[in-house]
């Protein structure tokens, strides 16, 4: 009797959380899923008829004779997106880890100031901040002018509208998402463990390798996920810094809902992005389980 009542009560307690997840996560995803199986409406939206066209378009193109032929254009964009997202994750890690480590080593009061500084970019509009990179990277921008003044180069380097510029923009945008979780795991770490490692014949770098990084691994993984997912779907940096030719999945989705007016195709793309992310997470979870959740030493 009591156990029944208790299960009931524990279910009741879950209602707010369940409702939140349903309303803000499950429902929107379902709507996207439904749209991806509709035919495109004439002025956006979808016609209420079942169609898998949107998914076919990912890989096939209708040629002049109305035949479906394989077209890797979107596949290329998907690969490029993953590639740029991975580069962004690595960049954020290389940049973010030392920063997080440095902050974690500061005295208590100063840490909070540094954390505040890390979040300052969020106070300004992302679009504006990304535009600023154009001023830095363009042919007559800060970098090129600076280098030419110093006489290091004669011609301006092509910096803007490259994959590198996109990755740079993404790293710049998402590095705080890497710093914060790594900081959280480093701050929890017992600093005396580093001394213990030093005592046992490890110099700083060896101690970093065998003690600090393994203990920061949960933060590193969380940071990688937090950077990878939005970087994969980003469209502001690719649009502004990549120009037309460095399209990423995010810009493609955005295009479908604006000028292209093909909501079902946009929805299908969104589903594909989600599937890719879930796949990455799945493989990570499986390898983590195989390693006993820890890092092999």
């Amino acid at each position: 009797m009591t156990s029944l009542r208790e299960t009931l009560r524990s279910h009741l307690a879950l209602i707010p959380a369940t409702a939140t997840i349903t309303i803000f996560m499950v429902l929107p995803i379902l709507i996207i899923l439904v749209y991806s199986f509709l035919a495109p409406g004439d002025y956006g939206g979808g016609k209420p008829e079942f169609s898998t066209n949107a998914y076919q378009r990912l890989l096939f193109q209708r040629d002049l004779f109305d035949q479906m032929v394989f077209d890797p254009a979107y596949l290329k964009i998907a690969f490029r997106s993953v590639w740029i997202a991975v580069v962004s994750v690595v960049g954020c890690l290389l940049l973010g880890f030392p920063v997080a480590y440095y902050i974690a080593c500061q005295p208590e009061e100063r840490r909070n100031i540094f954390l505040l500084l890390i979040t300052i970019p969020f106070w300004t509009n992302l679009l504006v901040r990304t535009y600023c990179w154009i001023l830095v990277l363009r042919d007559t921008g800060l970098v090129n002018v600076g280098l030419m003044r110093m006489g290091l180069i004669d011609e301006p380097l092509t910096l803007l509208y490259t994959e590198g510029a996109v990755a740079l923009g993404l790293i710049y945008t998402y590095v705080p998402f890497m710093v914060l979780p790594i900081y959280a795991s480093l701050e929890r770490m017992d600093r005396r463990l580093i001394e213990a490692a030093r005592d046992l014949y490890s110099n700083r770098w060896v101690a970093l390798r065998y003690v600090v990084i393994p203990l920061a691994m949960p933060g590193i993984i969380a940071g990688a996920i937090l950077v990878f997912i939005p970087a994969l779907g980003a469209f502001i940096a690719p649009d502004l810094l990549g120009g037309g030719k460095n399209l990423m999945l995010g810009s493609l989705v955005q295009l479908q809902f604006s000028s292209a007016r093909n909501w079902p195709f946009g929805s299908a793309l969104a589903m594909v992005i989600m599937a890719m992310v879930l796949m990455c997470l799945f493989f990570y979870a499986r390898s983590a389980k195989k390693n006993g959740g820890g890092i092999k030493h």
């Binding site: 017992d190 005396r192 001394e195 213990a196 393994p214 203990l215 820890g294 030493h297």
Partner: peptide, 10 residues
């Protein structure tokens, strides 16, 4: 060490 400082991940 007084607080042992064993490496928890090993």
């Amino acid at each position: 060490f007084q607080h042992y400082s064993l490496f928890p991940h090993m």
